[in-house]
Computed example of a mutant assay.
Amino acid sequence: MIATAPSTDVRQHILDVARPLLLSKGFTAVGLAEVLAAARVPKGSFYHYFGSKEAFGEAVLEDYFGNYLAHTDTLLAGEGTAAQRLLAFFDDWLDSQTGDEAQSRCLAVKLGAEVCDLSESMRTALERGTGGVIERLARCIEDGRADGSVVPAWEAHAVAAMLYQSWLGASLLAKISRNRAPLDTAVIGTRQLLGLHDKV
């Protein structure tokens, strides 16, 4: 039973149950009662782990980015040249945004514009998480410059930021249009910014 589980497990269970709700409805539209009912925990337990809904939202984002950054590390440290690893990362992004699994969607895309004006702590959690992705991309771009597989258009961090911004925007436009065309355009732009052209 959840009530007898270690406290860290209960806290994690609440976060795990809440993520698909937030991906589906957004932060404001999901009430605590809905989260509590889905997690099957009493209200008192919720406030034992999270002091407020805002603190809960921050914890959801930190947990999401913790998992996402670990996944990013796995992709960018995989086999092949740096260019191949970068393309594997963006192929994974494309699959997650165009597949049938709603739970694989990007929480930054879903909540970014909504929560930044609502909560400074949630905004900074988003900033830390997205900054972590950009830093990892920049390091891999530098690796690509070193192994000769990437010829970036500019300095590595600037290219990484532009790529991330492009994919974040493309993911949002794909949601708006219900069409994957913006993501396909991001793929083309990615190859150009990395100087891949017909390589890889």
Results as ranks from 00 to 15, higher is better:
residue 123 R to E: 03
residue 127 E to Q: 08
residue 18 A to M: 07
residue 97 Q to N: 14
residue 88 A to T: 11
residue 41 V to P: 08
residue 193 L to N: 04
residue 152 P to T: 07
residue 127 E to M: 15
residue 187 V to T: 09
residue 26 G to I: 09
residue 59 A to C: 08
residue 143 D to P: 04
residue 140 C to K: 04
residue 53 K to D: 06
residue 25 K to A: 04
residue 102 A to K: 06
residue 145 R to V: 12
residue 114 E to G: 06
residue 198 D to S: 06
residue 120 E to Y: 07
residue 120 E to H: 01
residue 4 T to S: 07
residue 62 E to T: 14
residue 152 P to E: 09
residue 9 D to G: 12
residue 179 N to K: 01
residue 134 I to Q: 10
residue 8 T to A: 05
residue 44 G to F: 10
residue 199 K to D: 13
residue 134 I to H: 07
residue 16 D to Y: 09
residue 66 G to F: 02
residue 14 I to M: 05
residue 118 L to Y: 05
residue 79 E to Y: 11
residue 27 F to T: 04
residue 34 E to C: 01
residue 101 E to P: 01
residue 142 E to C: 05
residue 108 A to G: 09
residue 196 L to I: 12
residue 6 P to H: 06
residue 140 C to R: 11
residue 63 D to A: 04
residue 146 A to Q: 11
residue 8 T to S: 09
residue 143 D to F: 01
residue 137 L to T: 05
residue 40 R to Y: 01
residue 116 C to L: 11
residue 68 Y to I: 14
residue 57 G to F: 13
residue 22 L to R: 01
residue 25 K to Y: 12
residue 87 L to C: 03
residue 197 H to A: 08
residue 113 A to C: 02
residue 9 D to T: 15
residue 100 D to N: 09
residue 192 Q to E: 12
residue 156 A to H: 14
residue 9 D to W: 15
residue 49 Y to P: 11
residue 132 G to E: 10
residue 107 L to F: 07
residue 33 A to Q: 12
residue 181 A to W: 05
residue 49 Y to R: 14
residue 94 L to Q: 00
residue 39 A to R: 14
residue 25 K to W: 14
residue 184 D to T: 10
residue 67 N to M: 03
residue 41 V to S: 09
residue 161 A to F: 06
residue 15 L to N: 05
residue 27 F to G: 00
residue 78 G to D: 10
residue 107 L to Q: 02
residue 43 K to A: 13
residue 105 R to I: 11
residue 128 R to D: 09
residue 162 M to I: 00
residue 100 D to K: 14
residue 51 G to Y: 13
residue 4 T to A: 06
residue 21 L to A: 08
residue 116 C to H: 06
residue 105 R to V: 15
residue 22 L to F: 12
residue 9 D to R: 12
residue 11 R to H: 15
residue 70 A to G: 13
residue 40 R to E: 10
residue 150 V to C: 08
residue 186 A to V: 08
residue 58 E to F: 02
residue 95 D to Y: 03
residue 136 R to P: 02
residue 167 W to T: 05
